[in-house]
């Protein structure tokens, strides 16, 4: 099966020598949602623009449905771009056109007849929940509605791939949720492959199947979303994941917890492979150790449990050490001894 989008050792160097993208390889299977996360300046935006040829790679190749587009040239790229929709952080709607006019634009560009284009545009506006708003102008709409127009405009030509450039970063949390839900429908109901870039792990957690983490133009880690969240291997990934896993106490919080709780503090990660409290009560009973739950929480990532709990163990030091050893959580002994 050929990937909908594939990058092979792609690099993009800008005049002046800055390497925005530095040897990236990744593959997006058709029908999936792929997220690229990273801090601003990590090269995400450039990476996304390589996919529809808005940027030409300095080296490496970009494949769409198996076709190499990296050496096509602007003129031959244009018809291909109609099969790739794109939405933007600042929506980038045409202010001089109505909502309907915005959605009509790519259809007329593709040479569709007036009546057919109008029918298609209205059908698409209905899909994004904006039926009846066609005659309004972008500045009369809320941010969430504007992004819906952006999505309708990007989907009007029925592309196979949708590129999302920080699509929810300018929206408030509730509107973000609505737009993410809509993008989920776009993927499931229309079968559109989505490649998105974001700095919000929330987006990755709710929408993506796979994720790649970028830093300094390179992909430092990638994989299935739950795996990356549950077992991050790279420091940057761990930092991103931690912000989403509020339950794991950071250093200052750990200080405060210690001042409140004199006993031994242990933080137990909860993943679907290691239910933290399983076998805990037997272990505690065996060694005569008592415990208090001092911090933590367990949430869900793609329908699987993820989080952590921090416990205070109370008892004779030797017994507590025996419990800690018995928990067999990697790295726990060192972390607890700090």
């Amino acid at each position: 099966m050929t990937a909908a989008v594939e990058l092979r050792d792609v690099a993009k160097e800008f005049p002046g020598g800055a390497r925005a993208v530095d040897g990236v390889s990744l593959s997006v299977e058709a029908g999936t949602v792929f997220g690229v996360v990273g801090h601003s300046g990590a090269g995400k935006s450039t990476l996304l623009r390589l996919v529809n040829g808005l940027e030409e790679p300095t080296s490496g190749s970009v494949l769409l449905d198996g076709q190499d587009i990296s050496a096509l040239g602007e003129r031959r790229l244009r018809p291909l771009r109609r099969e790739i929709g794109m939405i933007f952080q600042q929506f980038n709607l045409f202010r001089s056109r109505t909502v309907l006019g915005n959605v009509l634009y790519p259809l007329r560009l593709a040479g569709m007849g007036r009546a057919a284009a109008r029918a298609r545009a209205e059908e698409t506006l209905e899909f994004v929940g904006l039926a009846g708003h066609g005659g309004r102008y972008p500045e009369q709409l809320s941010g969430g509605q504007r992004q819906r127009v952006g999505i309708a405009r990007a989907l009007a030509t029925r592309p196979k791939v949708l590129l999302c450039d920080e699509a929810t970063s300018a929206l408030d949390p509730q509107t973000t949720g609505e737009v993410l839900a809509l993008l989920g429908r776009v993927n499931r109901e229309l079968g559109v492959t989505i490649l998105l870039i974001t700095h919000e792990m929330e987006v990755v957690r709710t929408l993506c199947d796979r994720v790649a983490v970028m830093e300094d133009g390179k992909v430092v880690e990638s994989g299935e979303v739950y795996e990356v969240f549950a077992r991050p291997r790279h420091a940057t990934t761990a930092a991103f994941v931690r912000s989403e896993r509020h339950s794991e106490p950071d250093a200052p919080l750990m200080e405060r917890l210690r001042s409140r709780h004199p006993g031994r503090l242990v933080t137990l990660p909860v993943t679907d492979g290691s239910p933290a409290l399983e076998g805990l009560s037997e272990l505690l009973q065996l060694h005569g150790v008592d415990f208090a739950l001092v911090h933590g929480g367990v949430g869900e990532v793609r329908g699987r449990p993820l989080g952590s709990v921090t416990l205070e163990l109370r008892g004779r030091p030797a017994a507590v050490e025996a419990v800690v050893a018995g928990l067999r959580v990697p790295g726990l002994a060192e972390a607890g001894a700090r």
């Binding site: 529809n52 808005l54 003129r75 790229l77 244009r78 018809p79 291909l80 771009r81 109609r82 790739i84 929709g85 794109m86 933007f88 600042q90 980038n92 709607l93 045409f94 202010r95 634009y105 790519p106 560009l109 593709a110 405009r153 030509t157 590129l163």
Partner: peptide, 14 residues
């Protein structure tokens, strides 16, 4: 805004 131009380019406009 340059973003608007980029949007048009992404739709395949010359």
């Amino acid at each position: 805004e340059p973003g608007v131009i980029e949007a048009a380019r992404s739709m395949g406009a010359g």
